Simulated assay, not measured.
Amino acid sequence: MTDINVRRINFGYFIRPASETGTGVPRVEPCLGYLVEHPDGLLLVDTGMGGDPDVDAHYRPHRIALPDALAVAGAQPDDIRHVVNCHLHFDHSGGNPSLPGRPIYTQRLELDIARTVEDHTLPWLIDSPGAVYVELDGEAEILPGVTIVPTPGHTVGHQSLVVRRGDGTVIVAGQSHDHAVGFTGDVLARRAEQDGAQEPLPFAPAWMERLLSFDPARVVFAHDNAVWTP
Score class of each variant (00 low, 15 high):
31 C>T: 15
217 A>D: 15
24 G>N: 10
170 V>E: 15
168 G>E: 15
226 A>I: 00
152 P>F: 14
196 G>M: 02
158 H>E: 14
51 G>R: 04
11 F>H: 10
142 I>L: 07
200 P>E: 13
59 Y>W: 13
230 P>N: 13
79 D>E: 06
145 G>I: 01
50 G>K: 02
84 V>I: 15
23 T>P: 06
221 F>C: 09
64 I>F: 02
103 P>K: 11
33 G>M: 02
201 L>Q: 14
114 A>C: 01
86 C>G: 02
57 A>H: 01
49 M>F: 05
52 D>M: 00
220 V>H: 03
41 G>W: 13
165 R>Q: 15
148 I>D: 14
1 M>S: 10
115 R>S: 01
149 V>H: 09
22 G>D: 11
200 P>V: 13
160 S>D: 09
143 L>T: 06
125 L>S: 07
136 L>I: 10
194 Q>I: 00
95 G>R: 11
209 E>Y: 09
134 V>H: 12
143 L>P: 04
186 D>W: 12
189 A>H: 10
181 V>G: 01
1 M>G: 14
105 Y>W: 15
72 V>Q: 11
61 P>I: 01
210 R>F: 06
140 A>T: 07
30 P>F: 04
215 D>Y: 07
15 I>H: 03
133 Y>N: 08
51 G>S: 11
198 Q>K: 11
56 D>P: 00
179 H>R: 12
83 V>N: 11
53 P>F: 00
166 G>K: 09
208 M>Q: 07
184 T>G: 01
145 G>A: 06
118 E>N: 00
112 D>F: 09
191 R>N: 07
99 L>Y: 13
106 T>M: 14
223 H>S: 14
179 H>I: 05
148 I>Y: 08
16 R>T: 05
182 G>N: 08
138 G>Q: 15
110 E>L: 01
54 D>E: 03
212 L>T: 12
134 V>E: 14
56 D>S: 00
19 S>G: 03
119 D>F: 03
60 R>D: 03
91 D>H: 13
196 G>S: 04
109 L>M: 07
137 D>W: 04
208 M>R: 08
112 D>C: 00
116 T>G: 00
13 Y>S: 14
136 L>N: 12
222 A>G: 15
111 L>C: 03
61 P>H: 02
230 P>H: 12
16 R>D: 13
187 V>E: 06
188 L>Q: 10
154 H>M: 13
36 V>Q: 09
218 R>K: 14
217 A>H: 14
193 E>Y: 05
75 A>Y: 08
120 H>W: 05
75 A>G: 08
30 P>S: 08
149 V>A: 08
13 Y>I: 00
58 H>A: 04
140 A>S: 09
216 P>T: 13
94 G>E: 12
192 A>V: 00
135 E>S: 06
37 E>I: 11
